[in-house]
Amino acid sequence: MNGVLTIDSAIVDAIVAHARRDHPDEACGVVAGPIGSDLPTRLIPMDNAARSMTFYEFDSMEQLRVWREMDDNDEEPVVIYHSHTATEAYPSRTDISFAGEPGAHYLLVSTRESDSEEIRSFRIVDGVVTEEEINIVDATVDA
């Protein structure tokens, strides 16, 4: 593994809660952060327009609105997350084919176990998947 995703524990908790809420459908969303900071700071849960247990897709109009909002705020999508609800938290061939944000951390949460979550992070660039560590920080301690 090389590279690391540093992310606030409150954001991770909110992502897991979103994934649990939408289970058994896949949940998806974005965590925006200031351009160039590599720090995810603003959680934006997105609708899964596919409403499927095995597929997710951002609604194209919601995506346009959110991407413009990030542009206006000088933000970029630092994390793009989604859940797998019956399989491991590893990018599927579909995930790899669609991965269109080379600068983003692709965070996967598996909710297949009811009492624990598997959370893993990857870079996906030109079809190549590289797993990275997740450094979960507690902002209340840092502040």
């Binding site: 896949e26 998806c28 974005v30 997105m46 596919a50 499927s52 247990m53 095995t54 597929f55 997710y56 897709e57 951002f58 194209s60 995506q63 793009i80 989604h82 797998h84 609800t85 019956a86 399989t87 990018p91 599927s92 061939r93 579909t94 995930d95 084919s97 669609f98 991965a99 269109g100 944000e101």
Partner: peptide, 10 residues
């Protein structure tokens, strides 16, 4: 970029 994916086969 369309943001999509999931466990389903491609």
């Amino acid at each position: 970029p369309a943001v999509a994916g999931g466990a389903l086969g491609f």
